[in-house]
Nucleic acid binder design. Structure first.
Lengths: 330, 330
DNA sequence: ATGAAAGCGCTAACAA
DNA sequence: TTGTTAGCGCTTTCAT
């Protein structure tokens, strides 16, 4: 029996290769007897898939350890990997001296140990992604990512719609002065949230008021200035903003939501869970993780078929705990 | 420039191979320019390490998703993988139809995609481990595992000593009738706990009293029988036993620890955290995970060097919240 | 100091 | 229906 026959049997090509049933059985028996297992490396050298999906985080600590933001994505990734019958390769070796993780380090790109990869994390540096895309390496980013000159695949929460909905929700409660509070630094997810806010305002016919501020600058004095505009509701980028605002409101003897409604568009960035409960948009992290893997496998299965490869997953609406109708005009 | 020269440069063998500095620079420049990256599959085909560590769980869901028992081990594994500069391959594809995960499935052992593996989970079936050991595959089990005829490597909490210490601690409080309560089914960790208990009793010169019972059989009636022996303290295998005992004690109007001291040797098996706080031995799960990876890498680095490969990691002592001196004899 | 060549285990096209 | 063979990309020994 030649290697070719064994190969055919192993790969279930016995039919198409017209291997006699008797031979097939003989081969299978020997395989079992000798405890033969195919060598993945050799197989992959021949251009076949390894059924391994890479997972790369740009942040320093791998999401396994964390009860935060990234952990839920990873859970979804893992769930779908099971469904798709793929193994998961976590690139834990890529730690740079600065704690960040790089894709390309001195020409030894570990990514090729996997068939494709899911990428996670907030990176300002898009050049690696551009490079990767140019190299034709199949990957899906978690969260929208715009890379100039490259049309990369991503799956992310639909921040824009969530944000727009938040405006509509507040308007339905009677608010006409709704401000947006968020970080000034540019980043895709933030841009989406702000854009959604503006769209919501336009639809409702109310003036947009974006108050961009760093969290540490959000003082009672800043708060006074914000209130001077006559706002009755705030849409904040993250719950951490809401927490600061609660402090400021307390200092000014205002109560939430009686005097001021607050809706948060995102929960913790990291660190401990916040103390107060906020009306907060729910991020579909598990689903995003699952869809990312699903998309990646589809891309791997049929590389050249054009398809939707930028997917926005709907967020769940906020509850009404910190939303109320505006107080009567003073 | 031939491939041999490039290979030498890539693998930092420029010195030993006496490649001229000028040539080396030329090669490095080209590598950068062309964006060349070595093919891991080809390299591994030549027998070189991949710097990939496998992680296999026998339980159905991968520990990533869970806030339980296994998750902490995985955290330690991940931490050490970063330190050792290895990637982690999670075998999420091995899911059997019954939800359990098998090492050997129809001759396609995925384990060989990694250089070695860390194995996790409670398996009654040791034949796979025997097989793996025979095949010469390098692996480390999390938790002591005895496989007949094979001398396998493992790293686990030192249950025996923890258990023995618990006895000593209770004896120091004046207890002379201390019972051990645990599951009757055999399993390495359980055996260790019970053995430690017996050792502790022997040292203290008190009679051992092992009350093996399934959790669902732990009723108030059973509790009455246990109390009839005159015990003043209980060492329980898991907090879930302690919880049941608290219920029984409540039903009999006994208070813990005034009327009965309780020490738990392990916390949750799975499921939600328990409500009551118990004096419970702390399991060094993170450390165990780290040490397992550390040992595995050592084994990989020097396969034939004999070394300590069965490591017990000390547990942390229980606090005194449910320990008191025994009540005066009735 | 550099090049030539064998061979790792596998798959697939082709020959018998 | 089965066997032969080239070659995937790399490392390493030996020759130059």
């Amino acid at each position: 029996v030649s290697r070719a026959v064994v190969s055919a049997v192993i790969n279930d090509r016995a039919r198409t290769q017209r291997i006699s049933a008797e031979t097939e059985q003989r081969v299978r028996a020997s395989v079992r007897q000798l405890g033969y297992v195919v060598n993945l490396a050799a197989r992959s050298l021949k251009g076949k898939r390894k059924r391994i999906l890479g997972v790369h985080t740009f942040e320093s600590v791998f999401p396994i350890a964390r009860r935060d933001f990234y952990h839920e994505f990873l859970t979804g990734i893992e769930e779908q990997a099971v469904v798709e019958g793929h193994d998961l390769l976590l690139f834990t070796s890529a730690e740079g001296s600065d704690g960040r993780r790089k894709l390309y380090s001195d020409g030894s790109n570990r990514l090729n140990a996997a068939d494709g990869a899911v990428l996670l994390g907030v990176t300002e540096d898009h050049s690696d992604l551009f490079q990767l895309s140019q190299d034709g390496y199949p990957f899906v980013y978690i969260g929208r990512r715009d890379v100039h000159g490259a049309d990369i695949a991503w799956v992310g929460p639909d921040y824009a719609t969530a944000s727009q909905d938040a405006v509509a929700r507040l308007v339905a409660h009677g608010h006409r002065r709704i401000a947006y509070v968020g970080y000034p630094q540019h980043q895709e997810a933030r841009a989406d949230r702000e854009t959604g806010y503006r769209t919501g305002c336009r639809i409702a016919g109310i003036p947009p008021l974006a108050l961009l501020v760093n969290l540490e600058d959000l003082s009672p004095e800043w708060f006074d200035l914000a209130l001077a505009t006559g706002v009755t509701a705030l849409i904040v980028e993250l719950e951490s903003f809401a927490n600061r605002i609660a402090e400021c409101a307390g200092a000014r003897h205002l109560s939430i939501p009686a005097d001021l409604s607050v809706v948060a568009l995102g929960d913790i960035e990291s660190g401990p869970a916040t103390d107060r409960k906020w009306s907060c948009v729910g991020l579909p992290r598990r689903t995003v993780g699952r869809q990312a893997v699903s998309l990646l496998v589809t891309m791997l299965d049929a590389p050249d078929v054009p398809r939707e490869h930028q997917i926005r997953v709907p967020c769940t609406p906020p509850d009404e705990s910190t939303i109320a109708s505006p107080a009567a005009a003073p």
